[in-house]
Amino acid sequence: MPNIDRIEGFADELTAIRRDLHAHPEIGFEEVRTSGIVADKLTQWGIEVHRGLGGTGVVGVLKGNGGGGKRIGLRADMDALPMEENTNLKWRSTIPGRFHGCGHDGHTTILLGTARYLAETRNFDGTVHFIFQPAEEGLGGARAMIKDGLFERFPCDEIYGLHNAPDLNHGELAVLPGPAMAGADFFDIVIQGYGAHGAMPERSKDAVVIAMTVAQALQTIVSRNVGPTDPAVLSITQIHSGSAYNVIPGEAKLCGTVRAFSDEVRALIRERMRTICAGIASAFQVEIKVDIRDIFSVLVNQEEQSKVVAEVARTVVDPAKVITRTQPKMGSEDFADMLHAVPGAYFWVGHEGSVPVHNPGYVFDDKAIPIAASMFARIIETRLPVAAHA
């Protein structure tokens, strides 16, 4: 059973919505126009709308046929990235420094397509909560919605989310039971040394040399402290120091990220980072400040909901193209926090094109929209069957 015909019938309208969102990207907690479009569309389709959760979040509530009390959440993220787009698309970003380089415009459109179909057919018994989340890209949008009472106001018995996947082929779908995406910390390390003339290094406490020492030492944590069977990454992604050729700077800053699939491993890495920095600070007689922030939880798919996704996927795409045993991804996703509160599953929908997300040349494949919307819709019709209360 391929895509749902009714969704295919308005796929062109969904593509137009997606391309409009793409041309007008908004970054985390600034999704005013995007959330307005979402709210307007849901209202047009007769869906109860609630705005303002987590700042710019939107929740749509739709009741099906029958008296079933089960509630299922479907979630899409809405935010763009603070980066430039490098494509020649007619619908490319019209806002400098803003780009839907991760396909969240597609995710938003997919959930809108699902909402329209379910509102028109109501071939389910229970309640669906359409959760449009702001600020997924490291800004804590999921946590903001949860803090605003998302699951108290809109209780869910289970919840599902998805992501487009350029590393999969069009028509492929993947779900991984258990830990599927890494937890993540972001860190800032500030070295306060003592500056001097570039020709007189003996009068300095050289922040650049100390920064290089810190960077080298931190790379031993994963290789020498974390067990070899525990996946972990520590990446320094920024180094800031100095302003002139003949001045030894007194300050340097290192920034980066840590990824792991275990909270115990994450705690170990944090402890070792602080210990190493304290030791180097003592050795060089400087001050080193370490700020490590928990940004993403480990994303864990529940077995039951993962099986649901796989079973439904075999009715939407070729069963041979449903992948249930992929390698966990070291990337992170704040849907993890929703999965910590409600059992559910997160899956990936393949599409044409090999340019990865977060690349300036990334292009979302609109042909994935009806596939993904059909997935969401069939999950609802499978988990909330009308016959259950007939």
Score class of each variant (00 low, 15 high):
Ala390Val: 15
Gly149Ile: 00
Pro155Ala: 10
Gln285Ser: 15
Thr34Val: 05
Thr229Lys: 13
Asp291Lys: 15
Gly64Tyr: 08
Leu162Ala: 05
Ser204Val: 03
Gly106Glu: 05
Asp125Arg: 15
Arg272Trp: 10
Glu264Pro: 02
Pro319Asn: 09
Thr109His: 02
Phe296Tyr: 14
Asp230Phe: 13
Ile269Phe: 15
Arg116Phe: 06
Asp185Phe: 11
Ala283Glu: 08
Ala16Lys: 15
Ile146Thr: 07
Val233Pro: 14
Pro134Asn: 11
Glu172Asp: 14
Phe376Pro: 01
Asp79Arg: 04
Ala368Pro: 02
Leu14Met: 05
Ser235Asp: 12
Gly36Gln: 05
Gly171Ile: 04
Tyr194Arg: 11
Met83Glu: 06
Ile323Asn: 13
Gln216Ser: 14
Gly227Met: 01
Phe186Asn: 11
His104Ala: 04
Glu31Val: 10
Thr324Glu: 02
Met83Ile: 01
Val214Thr: 14
Ile276Pro: 09
Arg270Cys: 12
Ser332Lys: 12
Asp12Phe: 09
Arg272Ala: 07
His340Glu: 15
Arg293Phe: 04
Phe376Cys: 00
Met375Asn: 04
Gln302Ile: 05
Gly353Leu: 01
Glu31His: 13
Asn359Val: 00
Phe154Asn: 07
Lys367Asn: 12
Ala174Ile: 03
Asp337Pro: 00
Thr220Tyr: 05
Pro385Trp: 02
Val349Pro: 01
Phe99Leu: 12
Lys253Leu: 02
Thr324Ala: 01
Glu311Ser: 13
Thr108Val: 08
Arg383Asp: 11
Val258Lys: 12
His340Ser: 15
Ala252Ser: 14
His170Asn: 07
Val175Met: 11
Arg325Met: 04
Val308Pro: 03
Ala215Gln: 11
Gly256Ser: 00
Val317Ile: 09
Arg71Asn: 13
Leu218His: 06
Val59Trp: 09
Thr237Arg: 09
Ile276Gln: 05
Asp188His: 11
Arg92Gln: 06
Ile292Lys: 14
Val214Asn: 12
Lys367His: 15
Arg51Val: 02
Arg272Met: 10
Glu85Trp: 09
Asp294Thr: 01
Arg224Asp: 09
Met273Ile: 13
Ser297Asn: 13
Met212Tyr: 10
Arg116Lys: 15
Thr94Pro: 03
Val258Ala: 12
Arg378Pro: 01
Ser93Arg: 01
Cys102Phe: 08
Thr315Ala: 04
Gly113Gln: 07
Ser243Tyr: 14
Ser262Met: 10
Gln327Gly: 01
Leu74Ala: 03
Glu333Phe: 11
Ile4Asp: 03
Pro356Cys: 02
Asp20Tyr: 14
Ala142Ile: 00
Gln302Val: 05
Arg92Glu: 06
Phe376Ser: 01
Val208Gly: 09
